[in-house]
Amino acid sequence: MVKFNKSAEFSFSCSSRILLGTVLAILVVFASIPFISNVYAAKPSLVLTIPKSDGILIHFAQQAFKEVSQRSGIDISITELPKKRALVEANMGNYDGTAMRVINLEKDYPNLVRVKSSVFSVQHVLFSSQEGTFEAVHSFHDLAEYVVKNNFKVGYLNGSKKAKDELSQLPLDNKIALGGPIQAFDLLKAKRINAYLAGPGMTNRDIFNKHYKGTGIQEVGVFAKFPLYPYLHKKHKELIPLLEQTLKAMIKDGSLNRIRDKLEKQ
């Protein structure tokens, strides 16, 4: 029989205790990692889409959501995509939502949930290719009758659900979906279309004033005015109450109007 002396037994016992203590310490460290990571976790972040054809409205969105970020603690950034793709990608969850779109998108994009505080109000404006046309037209019903009677063609932006709905009374041969405002104004200038239902009005007026004054193109008038809302993908719906609260505060203290007024004066 092998016998251990007391010294050897004591040494083995101490070594075992040290080893056991080390193992327990390691386990405590690993167990605490999730807690530490939660304490120091980065604040929530969102990437919202906006149509790249929105021009000056993009600058509004960037400035408005920068302030929303500062107030809410949500890190929000804006990315530009083609008008229809901006909705499709957000609905698929490839982005976290869309910055400013019309009400009732959920019918066609069921994964998007509306933030019920409007961030902006826009106009849909009609431009014509020559002076004197469309003067007696004051509604979409009048527009449909006038366009069909004269066999005219009206352009609108592809991906604009609102414009598509507004022109639903027109036969397919009397309307055409276009890639952006520049294409629309170019076609007006060349008289290849007779009218352009332009939205947002703020963006299109800015483009018209900078590049198309004196070309014979005329603004007929405002045909619609409506609010725009942010939408989040449903996986981020828990952030919606905080965004609504923040936007309501910015509406109440006039912050959103100040951002808009500053851009319009530039």
Results as ranks from 00 to 15, higher is better:
Asn91His: 06
Glu89Asp: 09
Phe30Trp: 13
Phe185Thr: 02
Glu244Val: 05
Phe134Ile: 00
Asn194Leu: 05
Val147Gly: 04
Val122Ile: 05
Glu131His: 00
Asn174Val: 03
Gly55Val: 02
Val29Ala: 15
Val220Asn: 12
Phe185Leu: 04
Ser168Asn: 11
Lys153Tyr: 04
Val113Arg: 15
Ser69Val: 01
Lys116Ser: 14
Phe12Val: 14
Phe65Asn: 07
Ala90Pro: 09
Ala90Asp: 12
Leu167Glu: 09
Ala249Cys: 05
Pro171Lys: 13
Leu243Tyr: 07
Ala86Glu: 03
Pro200Phe: 02
Ile36Ala: 15
Phe185Arg: 07
Ser255Thr: 15
Glu80His: 03
Asn91Met: 07
Gln70Met: 04
Thr79Cys: 04
Pro241Ser: 01
Glu219Ser: 03
Ser15His: 05
Gln130Trp: 08
Lys84Asn: 04
Gly93Phe: 01
Gln70Glu: 13
Lys162Ile: 03
Leu243Pro: 08
Asp253Glu: 00
Ser13Lys: 11
Ala61Asp: 10
Leu170Asp: 07
Ser53Arg: 06
Gln183Pro: 00
Leu126Ala: 12
Phe152Ala: 06
Glu238His: 06
Ala61Trp: 04
Asp253Ala: 10
Lys234Phe: 01
Met1Asp: 06
Gly132Trp: 04
Arg205Trp: 01
Ala86Ile: 00
Phe30Val: 12
Val113Thr: 06
Leu187Tyr: 07
Lys43Thr: 10
Leu228Glu: 02
Asp54Thr: 05
Lys234Pro: 01
Leu247Asn: 07
Phe152Trp: 10
Ile182Val: 14
Val125Ala: 06
Ala99Asn: 03
Val115Gln: 10
His141Arg: 14
Ala195Val: 03
Ala41Val: 11
Tyr229Asn: 10
Arg85Pro: 07
Ile193Thr: 05
Gly93Met: 12
Asp173Trp: 08
Lys153Asp: 04
Thr49Cys: 11
Phe140Cys: 06
Gln218Lys: 13
Gln169His: 06
Asn91Asp: 15
Lys161Asn: 08
Ala64Val: 05
Val28Ser: 15
Phe30His: 08
Pro110Asp: 14
Met1Ser: 13
Asp261Leu: 14
Leu197Thr: 02
Ile240Gly: 07
Lys252Asp: 09
Met202Gln: 10
Gly179Gln: 08
Tyr109Trp: 11
Ile58Trp: 05
Asn111Gln: 14
